[in-house]
């Protein structure tokens, strides 16, 4: 069994455990390459079906191609697609692009807060109606008790301390210092009311693994990852005002793999184009302890 197949099978096992053990389960889909691989793995786990709702937190500042790609795939693969937003903050223009707060505050409001309240059902959720192709207010307000997230341990510091099944407290907080034991393919699938569990099937994958797998499986990815002729491409995707492309001539998956292997980026962090990381001296730790992805 080769390296990618081994990773794939472990992730499938984890996804199936999550599906069996959590009644209110959802999967976060950021439209990025990692969570799209995760979505593909879900299709593998359930033999072509995705019996888990996909949740996207829409900050309204995402690069437009991302939303178009999301809805295209959602319809094609018949995904149970849901999105949530911080409507209040958006209405009151409480955001970095509007000049009313710092990048970190903006992330906290439009991503962390929106995520926590969408998951808990406190704020409205919008669900794709496959008959009309439009999003409608979702009547299901039940909190999600299991949340599948595509974080990888090599991505940035705090993510390497994660478990595959990682409990979050009543306020979605993460107690880094006191994590439950996890061994022998047995995971934390029991949780007290009001708390939830984050599930990380991609923990052992690296950036290169992700691209090699995309290549092997021919997974459709958003065009922003490729150089469209101006010798730049996005290496990590986020909101338009806070994400910068990197210099690269890679025009397709094979060229990205080549680029990663030659070590052009070997000393540049994957998320170096993500401006909020720089403001958070703890390497996203502040954001993540509070419930950020």
């Amino acid at each position: 069994m080769d390296h990618l197949t081994r990773l794939e099978n472990k992730s499938i096992h984890i996804l199936r455990e999550a599906y069996s053990e959590f009644k209110n389960l959802c999967m976060l889909w950021s439209i990025g390459k990692d969570s799209t691989v995760l979505l593909w793995l879900a299709r593998k786990s359930f033999f072509g079906h995705v019996p888990i709702p996909l949740v996207h937190i829409d900050t309204s500042f995402k690069i437009p191609e991302m939303i178009a790609y999301r809805d295209r795939l959602a319809i094609k693969w018949r995904l149970d697609m849901i999105y949530g937003q911080n409507l209040n903050a958006l209405k009151e223009k409480q955001s970095f692009p509007d000049g009313n707060c710092t990048r970190l505050e903006c992330c906290k409001l439009l991503k962390t807060e929106a995520l926590i309240n969408t998951l808990s059902g406190n704020w409205p959720r919008y669900r794709l109606n496959h008959d009309t192709g439009k999003y409608e207010l979702d009547h299901n307000r039940e909190p999600y008790s299991g949340v599948i997230v595509g974080v990888r341990s090599d991505e940035e510091g705090t993510r390497s301390k994660e478990r595959y099944f990682s409990p979050r407290g009543k306020k979605s907080n993460w107690d880094l210092a006191d994590q439950p034991p996890e061994f022998w393919n047995q995971y934390k699938t029991d949780f007290s009311p009001g708390t939830h569990v984050r599930i990380h099937p991609l923990l052992d994958w690296t950036e290169l693994d992700i691209w090699e797998y995309i290549n092997r499986e021919k997974i459709p990815t958003v065009s922003l990852y490729y150089n469209q002729g101006d010798s730049t491409r996005y290496r990590s995707l986020g909101c338009a005002p806070c994400t910068r492309p990197v210099d690269s001539t890679a025009k397709n998956v094979a060229e990205i793999i080549e680029e990663l292997k030659t070590g052009q980026f070997s000393r540049i962090a994957e998320r170096s184009g993500r401006e909020q990381d720089k403001e958070d001296g703890g390497g996203l730790e502040t954001l993540r302890v509070d419930g950020y992805m």
């Binding site: 510091g157 390497s160 994957e270």
Partner: peptide, 15 residues
């Protein structure tokens, strides 16, 4: 190396 995490290059104590 742990300090470097904040710059995004990750070696951490556990792995």
């Amino acid at each position: 190396l742990k300090d470097e995490q904040s710059q995004g290059i990750t070696i951490e104590s556990a792995r």
